[in-house]
Design a protein around this nucleic acid. Structure first.
Lengths: 193, 193, 193, 193
DNA sequence: ACCCGCGGGACGGCCCGTTATT
DNA sequence: AATAACGGGCCGTCCCGCGGGT
């Protein structure tokens, strides 16, 4: 049981890592299984709906991971700006340490499957929504009014995602740095948001 | 000659359209060929390097298309804000009319191949860079100083890409609308960018 | 289990038969599968390394078959000359009954792949070596001294292979008959070998 | 005209070289054309029957080359044994210098196509026959009686072909050396052959 | 009249995601 | 819970002609 759960969790974790680097369609079940060390035949025992179910689980796992990282950034910060730039810097560090292989763990799969799998699209949507929520909560914690936080948090997420995409494509942290400037602007006292 | 160029161009156009909707790995050569009306065998004549070469050509074509659209938006506008919101609205219209199937024609392929194909990564990078340039040129045309335009244009592109990703994932134009607000802020007189 | 082994064995047997007649490169996986009655997908399960692995298995099977035929010829003979001419006559009979389609089951594949696949070259080499050994053992059984048997057996094999090649090419048993004369000479009392 | 003939001859020469190393089915028209420096489209102008016609021409060319080499060996020798061992040594040298890639230029194609193409089988048959003839002529020149020469020459060719096959497969000159001993025996004064 | 760029289906081998069977 | 299959589809490349340049 714990062994089964372990095996399942390992598989999902392996899938999440591979989807992040190679995308959903670029990752074979074979790769996931061998990376996770699980046997072949049990896959459809744990995931009766097949690859799509693994994908949804991986999206969920990755979504939770980032959400927790956002919460941790909030805990470690003393201002809204520090909070948000903290998030950006963690992402930048991931990008750099992985040679620009590890960007957003959701985006690639989200784009690949948005038009083809409602299940995966929804899973990606939930993940993004949870990040937005977490950012909003963090902003409120640092004194940003709920109304403004609700408007700014999706904007911040958008800026962040755009920067991750461009950084990965250009193999440069420059878009991440620009994103930092943009979010500062979004959080500036006078900004109408 | 014209027939040959036609056939090749049709294939690339079909590829670009399919990559936009389903991504690179999600699109089979078979689909591209039948969509373009070309037979299998000619493909290897026109694209000796195979799918990767088609991908690069499709990325280049799509890049040019958007670049021209940006230039057209500049021609049709009377202010920097109108110019940039014009771009966003065209993209929003594409999104909506295609039932959120047609977002950025580069982003999906860029993310899928950034870590696996230097050729495709570079092609995507060039496309993004050309948009950034075109935006910068447009901004300068409306009186934004070169220095500021050079800093703001990549930020605008980042905001736009992030919004396209989120809109597609959420099947909602709301992120696009938020992006409009963000770029207004970026272009506001007092913004340090 | 027995079914699995059966299916695999059938595939290998079909492959060996086809490689013998049409060679390795002239035989498609499709032909092998349909001849063996196996479905497509199982192939990669049984032979993860693909066609090369099937080729090696087929070479090994064919090698064993001939080795056993040589051993049987030894059992059925009362002299070294009778033993070796017995081998030749069996081969001649195969050639004739198959309308010169079935010659050496190793030679064609050996020549096709000697320079391209170390795996297949080695498999062919092993097969030939096993025949040579079996011939040597047979010769010793009929009183040929080990030293001489060790020198004569490869010579006999060479003569036999050359004759099989020429007979197939000329569609005539004449080279096989000449080979019989040559091996008699090799086994003649006074021959220095 | 001379250009055309040149191009055609180059193509055939390239084909012969490639067929020798990789066999007939293992060699693509593409390889032949690019090795020969010829354009694609003209191929069916020069060889209306396609690959088979190229194959026949290549077999003929290679056959002539070896026949001439046999004649040259006869010219350079003073005895029947020296003549035949001279042939063997040239072949051994080819084998060794090409890392066992260049054995008999006919055998591989002969075996691959014996059962599938009457045209190619006949071309190979002719080549072998011409070698046999040339050997017979050489033997007669050194005093071997016509009757014996006619019986011994095919035997020698068989021994030689068998040795070439085994040497290539084992990547060893040992079968060639054994072949030398065998032909000495065939040419020994007392041999009934 | 000779040549060849360009195009055309058909498989080539491989591997995909999935399912009976136990 | 996992072994042993299963078709289908992947991309690449095969060998081959049409129609237009020279």
């Amino acid at each position: 049981m714990s062994k089964g759960a372990d095996s399942k969790a390992k598989t999902v974790a392996a899938a999440a890592a591979l989807f992040r680097r190679r995308g959903y369609n670029g990752t074979g079940l074979h790769d996931i299984l061998s990376a996770g060390g699980s046997p072949r035949g049990s896959l459809y025992f744990h995931f009766p709906k097949g690859k799509e179910e693994i994908g949804a689980a991986a999206l969920s796992l990755a979504g939770d991971g980032v959400r927790e990282a956002i919460a941790a950034a909030a805990d470690a910060s003393r201002s809204a700006v520090a909070f948000v730039t903290g998030i950006i810097r963690v992402m930048s560090a991931n990008l750099e340490s992985s040679n620009f292989s590890e960007g957003c763990p959701i985006a690639t799969t989200a784009l690949e499957t948005a038009a083809n799998s409602e299940v995966l699209r929804a899973a990606a949507s939930n993940a993004f929504r949870s990040w937005e929520d977490e950012i909003r909560i963090g902003l409120e914690r640092f004194g940003i009014k709920p109304k403004r936080a609700a408007l700014t948090s999706p904007a911040i997420l958008g800026v962040l995602e755009g920067a991750l995409l461009l950084s990965r494509t250009h193999r440069s942290l420059e878009p991440m740095n620009r994103a930092e400037a943009t979010v500062r602007l979004l959080l500036a006292p006078g900004a109408a948001a």
